[in-house]
Amino acid sequence: MLIDFNFRIILEYLPLFLTGLRSTFFISIVSIALALTTGIIACACRISGVRIIKYPAIAYIEVIRSTPLLVQIYFLYFGLPTLGLMIPEIQTGILALMLNSGAYIAEIIRAGINSVDEGQLEAGISSGLNYIQRMRFIILPQALGVTIPPLLGQAIVLVKDSALLSLISVMELTRCGQTMTSERFMPAEAFFTVAFFYMCIYFVLKAVADWSQRKLIFREAY
């Protein structure tokens, strides 16, 4: 059991794990940036009153939220080539993560906007501010405070979700564990090391999320 835990082999594979870690970082950062953009656009479409962009946005968000990410990844991985689109696995993976997290982020932003008290809107209306001004000066600054903690939560989810890209042979952290297991058959050393690295990322992001939770939320005081 743990007594046989072989640290030497971990050291031997450390360079591989570090490349995997770097790849996980790269995938996560690119995906979260793209997902944020997608989410903002999808949310703007959804809350707009314009039907031809509102309903597609709703369909996108609901379909993503009610199907597993792994199925979405396979859908693109096996589906894009049938459309004649040959792109590298890593790009397929990032595309899947972007589309998946984008839908959740759209809902997070929408919830943030809805969380702003109706009276705030009325106060803005009474002062004669127009829709854009109300959004810009009153709603969005307050919504930002409530959306940052769940957005960081979504970032944590995305980092963990990126592990599924190992199943379409993207060489990231989890894939390194699989490689080491198949080469040396030491799954305990391999996957506990992988888990250790994910835990490190998790604790850093969680600390930031908790801090932002305390710092950023403005509340209307009565």
Binding site: I156, A163, T174, P187, F191, V194, A195, Y198, M199, Y202
Partner: peptide, 23 residues
């Protein structure tokens, strides 16, 4: 809870499926 929330589910499955037999 921190272990579960901090690691991907697929890694947890590998741990259960590959490591328990070793033990």
């Amino acid at each position: 809870v921190a272990f579960v929330r901090g690691t991907p589910f697929v890694v947890q499955i590998f741990i259960v499926f590959f490591i328990l037999p070793e033990w």
